[in-house]
């Protein structure tokens, strides 16, 4: 990384959910910086706060305290319009459960964010077809989600996330509902997106297959960062997984 540009910075982000009289401290002060073009994995056991962090960074929910900066802009200061614009143009989201629109086929799903971004129907379709080709679904353009496997649906979701050339792709357990091999294919696809398009990839996951692809791993336990490792520092267990992947 020649020049490291900060793309995401969180400062003491905490999140407290109140359920009746009970308080759940999902995040207990997360401070980290993510640089443009990085592949980051947020690793941690289930319930450690990964999805909560994902939602904060993605502008899908607001922190109880602390700030989230994207491109040095505090997103809490954004109005509804700018926030929607951020979600539309700046960030692409990928979910564990794919979250495709069930009544729309692949090309319509991928076109949707481009329609919102003001592209004409034809432009959107052409680009959607191109993106679906890129993720290996060139022959599935008019299939609906129910007519596709989990892996294929997640590919559609990746194409949709790329629709408006976002700077950041946020992925919450993208391999969580997929088998080993399909999961690996999705990771390879994300890696390719990072390499070919320079997209910053942030995944929340407890899938150790993800480690090998990551430039850095942010380990989260109980709502706190326990350590941050660069790829070179990852231990031998990961090395063996990396070896198996070649």
């Amino acid at each position: 990384m020649e020049e490291r540009r900060e793309i995401v910075h969180t400062q003491d982000v905490t999140k407290v959910y109140t359920m009746g009289s009970e308080e759940v401290h999902a995040l207990r002060g997360i401070t980290c910086t993510i640089y443009s073009g990085e592949y980051i994995s947020i690793m941690g056991p289930s319930g450690s706060g990964k999805s909560t962090f994902f939602n904060m960074v993605g502008g899908l929910d607001k922190p109880s305290a602390g700030e989230v900066y994207i491109d040095e802009v505090d997103i809490a200061q954004l109005g509804v319009y700018e926030l929607a614009w951020l979600r539309c143009r700046k960030i692409g989201y990928i979910f564990q459960t794919f979250n495709l629109i069930m009544v729309m086929n692949a090309i319509e799903n991928v076109s949707l964010p481009m329609i919102f971004a003001g592209l004409s129907a034809d432009e959107a379709r052409d680009k959607a077809a191109e993106l679906l080709g890129l993720v290996g679904l060139g022959d599935r353009l008019t299939h609906r989600p129910v007519e596709m496997s989990g892996g294929q649906q997640q590919r559609v979701a990746i194409a949709r996330a790329l629709a408006n050339d976002p700077a950041i792709i946020l992925a919450d357990e993208p391999t969580g509902n997929l088998d080993l091999r399909t999961g690996r294919e999705i990771i390879e696809l994300l890696t390719a997106m990072k390499e070919e398009r320079g997209v910053t990839i942030i995944t929340a996951t407890h899938d150790h297959k993800m480690l090998a692809a990551s430039d850095r791993v942010i380990w989260v336990t109980d709502g706190q960062i326990s350590r941050i490792q660069k790829r070179e520092e990852l231990d031998i267990r990961v090395g063996s997984i990396e070896g198996a992947e070649e």
């Binding site: 990384m1 540009r5 443009s36 073009g37 491109d71 802009v73 200061q77 954004l78 700018e82 614009w85 951020l86 143009r89 700046k90 050339d165 976002p166 700077a167 390499e195 398009r197 320079g198 997209v199 910053t200």
Partner: peptide
């Protein structure tokens, strides 16, 4: 490596 297009969105 290509750097992603930077679009300032606050203004």
């Amino acid at each position: 490596m290509t750097t992603p297009k930077h679009i300032p969105f606050s203004e």
